[in-house]
């Protein structure tokens, strides 16, 4: 009887979840949900796709391409890739939920940090959460970008952070 009661509690919770999801405006559409497709085994293994600064500079301004800065807001304010958005993420590289929704319409997101290694966990976090978006890492990070004399700007982070990006 004890086990049956426990199952009743769990089943009640499950049914409540289904019912609440059905009446929730932003509810999950179970029938049309698609798991993120893993097309590339190297990506599935957590290996980042890396792009040279010169390759990335050719994509600047292209439709659907977002360049994301994974460094601290302070570093971002001191200088960043032109048109890059600041990506709020924690020390483990997990990107804040509110930032994800702003990247969902992108076709390609290129992430950079102080170096390649700093951007890799952020790219991995994005790849797990953005379905159908190509995620790449800027090889060498921001130092490699600025060393090649490519366009960079400085300024307060608030104007460029994803949350306030127009």
């Amino acid at each position: 009887m004890l086990f049956l009661r426990a199952l009743i509690l769990l089943a009640g919770g499950a049914l409540l979840g289904v019912a609440a999801n059905a009446i929730r405006p932003e509810g999950l559409r179970v029938g049309s949900f698609e798991s993120p497709t893993v097309c590339d085994e190297s990506e599935a293994a957590g290996v980042s796709v890396e792009m040279e600064p010169s390759e990335v500079s050719k994509l600047c301004g292209s439709t659907g391409v977002v360049i994301a800065d994974a460094r601290s807001p302070k570093s971002f304010a001191e200088g960043h890739v032109a048109d890059a958005v600041h990506l709020p993420c924690d020390a483990a590289g997990s990107v804040a939920s509110q930032a994800i929704s702003h990247l969902e319409e992108a076709k390609t997101v290129i992430v950079y940090g102080h170096d390649t290694d700093e951007a890799r966990p952020v790219a991995a976090s994005l790849r797990r959460r953005l379905h159908g978006v190509r995620i790449a890492v800027l090889r060498g990070g921001f130092p490699a970008w600025s060393a090649q004399g490519l366009a960079c700007v400085s300024g307060p982070c608030d104007d460029c952070a994803i949350g306030g990006h127009k």
Binding site: L10, G12, G13, L16, G17, V18, N21, G27, L28, P36
Partner: peptide
């Protein structure tokens, strides 16, 4: 986001959306 996380566990990924709507409410009820 939770459904995507569940599917990334690669443990019956087809069930991920069902787990995503049932598990949170099970946790709250219990």
């Amino acid at each position: 986001a939770f459904a995507i996380d569940v599917s990334n566990y690669r443990l019956f990924p087809a069930l991920a959306p069902y787990v995503a709507i049932m598990l949170p409410m099970c946790e709250i009820v219990v």
